[in-house]
């Protein structure tokens, strides 16, 4: 839902590196004191949380031993597969629509540009859940009977396409004017000029931003329970009703989501660093 930007590009010293001077003896003493105090406070907080778990019986092995069973992980794994399928499908559909929107956005025809801008603004300003309700509640009223997979994939894709279109456009704009001119001077037609010369360069430029967008898509697929599609969240619910272990299961599932997104974000940053590093040399 939240938009992520890749601003960490340069490897030069950032302001945070020079914010503090090399500490003198007084500053060192203060920092040491603050370190000890804050460590103590944080540890207390952690102990309190664990105590709260303990007091309410949530540390009971029966809530956690289910994660020692292979079946639990197989089941969550199946759910994760559903999540990945939905996220991949939504990403691809979104990319397709975004491509079209981007081409209209940079077209020389005013009407196409207008339509594109309107659609981009529209999809960027509307929550994914509203699109999901559209496909879940409204589409059937027109006799559009979609399988659950598309009921979650299509709205998530539509919700993301506006941002993806803008990302792609920024990529196209980053390609130097001279590339167009060089291609034109070779007598290439617009189509081959764009798809063989310009877009491949633009695409490489926006890979980090596209990876960040996958994180948003992945998060949005967690609404799959609304349309009864078996993603990881939905399978977690089944586990819970089987084992009566709500807290532990939801916690573990949340951690899995966080880890996946964390890794994706790291990949995005690494891709951006690689891109900027290469550009500099």
């Amino acid at each position: 839902m939240m938009r992520e930007e890749n601003k960490r590009g340069s490897r030069t010293t950032s302001i945070i590196d020079v914010l503090y001077e090399a500490p003198g003896p007084k500053a060192r003493r203060k920092i040491r004191a603050a370190t000890i105090v804050s460590m103590a406070v944080l540890l207390c907080l952690l102990v309190l949380i664990i105590l709260q778990f303990y007091k309410n019986g949530q540390l009971d092995p029966r809530y956690w031993s289910i994660f020692l069973r292979k079946t639990t992980w197989t089941f969550l794994g199946e759910g994760l597969l559903g999540t990945v399928k939905a996220a991949l499908g939504a990403s691809l559909v979104s990319f397709g629509i975004a491509m079209l929107l981007m081409l209209w956005r940079i077209s020389s025809r005013k009407i196409l540009r207008g339509i594109s801008v309107t659609l981009i603004e529209f999809t960027r300003g509307i929550p994914t859940l509203l699109f999901i309700y559209f496909f879940f509640l409204l589409a059937p009223q027109f006799g559009l009977k979609l399988p659950a997979y598309w009921k979650i994939t299509l709205p998530v894709a539509i919700s993301a396409c506006g941002v993806v279109a803008e990302v792609l456009r920024s990529g196209v704009q980053s390609v130097p004017r001279g590339q167009w001119e060089a291609a034109m001077s070779l007598g290439m037609r617009w189509g081959s000029m764009f798809f063989k010369v310009i877009f491949p360069q633009a695409f490489r430029y926006v890979i980090p931003a596209l990876i960040s967008e996958i994180v948003i898509v992945l998060k949005d697929t967690t609404f799959a329970y609304v349309v009864n599609y078996a993603d990881m969240m939905q399978n977690a619910r089944v586990l819970i009703s089987n084992y009566d272990a709500l807290l532990s299961v939801h916690l573990v599932v949340a951690v899995i989501y966080i880890l996946i997104n964390y890794v994706l974000n790291k990949i995005s940053v690494a891709a951006a660093d690689g891109r900027n590093g290469k550009g500099k040399r």
Partner: peptide, 25 residues
């Protein structure tokens, strides 16, 4: 920041609504 940047909204809401009561909150 890493936790709340990466947790899906639905997962967080479910924890708050359904899981916290198990901790007496």
């Amino acid at each position: 920041v890493q936790i709340f940047r990466n947790i899906p909204g639905a997962a967080l809401l479910i924890l708050l609504v359904y899981a916290l009561p198990y901790l007496n909150v």
